[in-house]
Design a protein around this nucleic acid. Structure first.
Length: 424
RNA sequence: GGAGGACUAGCAUAAUUGGUAAUGCAGCGGUCUUGAAAACCGCCGUCCUUUGGACUUGGGGGUUCGAGUCCCUCGUCCUCCGCCA
């Protein structure tokens, strides 16, 4: 959510920014409602002022045992008028909110302008793509021959897109997640969180999943809860309605969670194996920072995610998203894509974003500045560090051998009981 | 699932039969001081058309001229009972 004062002062800028994001907002309608709201407030406050004054008088007169019936009748009518104005005001404010919550965040000045994802800019590349003296298999062929996951039985239990890991596959998945968490907690200064996997409507609204992406989430009607699509939701909402002390910023959390996505509308796209599933595992990093340093924090967040890929020695590239491809709540975002030799394409395994005060305003997360001034909204950031399903794909395909085995990267071996290779 | 209790500003605590939210601590600014402490003054939740006014006692609604206080409803926490991995 943007600051209404900012929209009032910069209507053209907001219109342009939302158009750039391919999400044009009706700013004129919003500003008209805003003017209406202020008119009503002026009217009703004058009446309330009168009522307060007269109520005091009534109290005094009653103590003196004087007759108050005339003034009482008069105030009854004033009170009724106030009620009418108040209800009108409430309607207008609901309309304002309905408009305001649909306005996307404004992209940062450094974000490249574009019209589609084609215009995202590759800003960094790391590692050499592996060469093979045989035709590399894809992860489904490898998984089947190694017996480490079972999509058919997963589908029997739940449906398509709910993978089942088995044996060394399950171990490898667990090893990856533990390695991610250990790296972030011991080397990168994050505090580990194990969050709830179901979150209420308010929390999903706070991070911006709602109201726009409700159809992408699993909803439990009985309890009005959503299965989280990312740990970003519960972890960012930890400090909902709080005022943080500036000394404690930046606050850095990392969390494992299962992530649930309906992927409505994407049927027939990336249907193979782990590329697009309804449930996957991810370690998420979340930061709360002061506005002055949030873009430095974004760079370090990106660095933390890259560190994982480098430790696993998986070649990857970093994309800076253009404004048209930027998500609703983000002001700037880097995507990390890892090379999958079997698929012969890059797979997105991390998104690192700065939301500035957009989410904080929706969640009411503020901090007390060092100068002791009024509380200000924090900047929130998050990034995957990283998502396993697709990392697993790249890892299996990159580390496969001509003999059909898969070598275990050195950093994972301690987490795999010292194994160096998965064999059929 | 049932019974009882609680929720007031960053924290902690008040408010007579309903009469319009008091105080302490912490923080910031100022006076004073070589500096600091102490003391004193101001600020210290939101909004509006800001010499002023309105709103704010967990959320929402109701009664009333007027609600922290009375009524309804929802939420959270605590205690006990029941069920349960």
């Amino acid at each position: 959510m943007l600051d209404i004062q900012f929209i009032r002062d910069n209507p053209e800028k907001v219109k342009q920014a939302s158009a750039n994001k391919k999400d044009p907002a009706d700013i004129d309608a919003l500003l008209e409602l805003d003017g209406k709201r202020r008119n009503i407030i002026y009217e009703v406050e004058q009446l309330k002022s009168l009522r307060n004054k007269k109520s005091q008088e009534i109290g005094t007169l009653k103590k003196e045992k004087k007759d108050v019936s005339v003034i009482l009748a008069e105030m009854k009518s004033v009170s009724d008028t106030i009620k009418r104005f108040d209800s009108e005001l409430k309607t207008v404010e609901e309309d304002i909110r309905a408009h305001a919550i649909k306005i996307p965040n404004i992209s940062h000045g450094s974000v490249p302008h574009g019209v589609s994802e084609e215009d995202n800019v590759v800003v960094y590349e790391w590692g050499d793509r592996p060469g093979f003296d045989f035709e590399p298999r894809d992860h489904m062929q490898l998984g089947e021959s190694l017996g480490i996951f079972d999509f058919t039985r997963g589908a029997k239990i739940s449906g398509a897109g709910f993978p089942l890991y088995k044996g060394y596959g399950a171990l490898l998945e667990r090893a990856l997640l533990t390695f991610f968490l250990d790296t972030h907690t011991t080397k990168n200064g994050y505090t580990e969180i194990f969050p709830p996997f179901l979150a209420n409507e308010q929390s999903h609204f706070g991070t911006g999943q709602l109201p726009k992406s409700g159809d992408q989430m699993y909803y439990i009607n009985e309890d009005s809860m959503y299965c989280i699509p990312t740990a970003e939701v519960p972890v960012t909402n930890i400090h909902q309605d709080e005022i943080l002390a500036h000394e404690q910023l930046p606050v850095q959390y990392c969390a494992y969670s299962a992530c649930f996505r309906r992927e409505a509308g994407s049927y027939g796209k990336d249907t193979k194996g782990f590329l697009r599933v309804h449930q996957f595992n991810k370690v998420e990093m979340v930061k709360f920072a002061i506005p002055e340093t949030s873009y430095d924090e974004l760079e370090s967040l990106r660095g933390n995610a890259e560190g994982i890929l480098q430790a696993l020695k998986l070649p990857y590239r970093v994309l800076e998203l253009c404004d048209a491809d930027l998500s609703f709540a983000a002001a700037k975002c880097y995507d990390l894509e890892v090379w999958a030799p079997g698929e012969k394409k890059y797979l997105e395994v991390s998104s690192c974003s700065n939301f500035e005060s957009f989410q904080a305003r929706r969640m009411n997360i503020r901090y007390k500045p060092a100068d002791g001034g009024k509380p200000r909204f924090v900047h929130t950031l998050n990034g995957s560090g990283v998502a396993t399903a697709r990392i697993l794909v790249a890892l299996l395909e990159t580390y496969q051998t001509a003999g059909g085995t898969v070598r275990i990267p050195e950093v994972l071996q301690p987490y795999m009981h010292g194994m160096t290779e998965i064999r059929p």
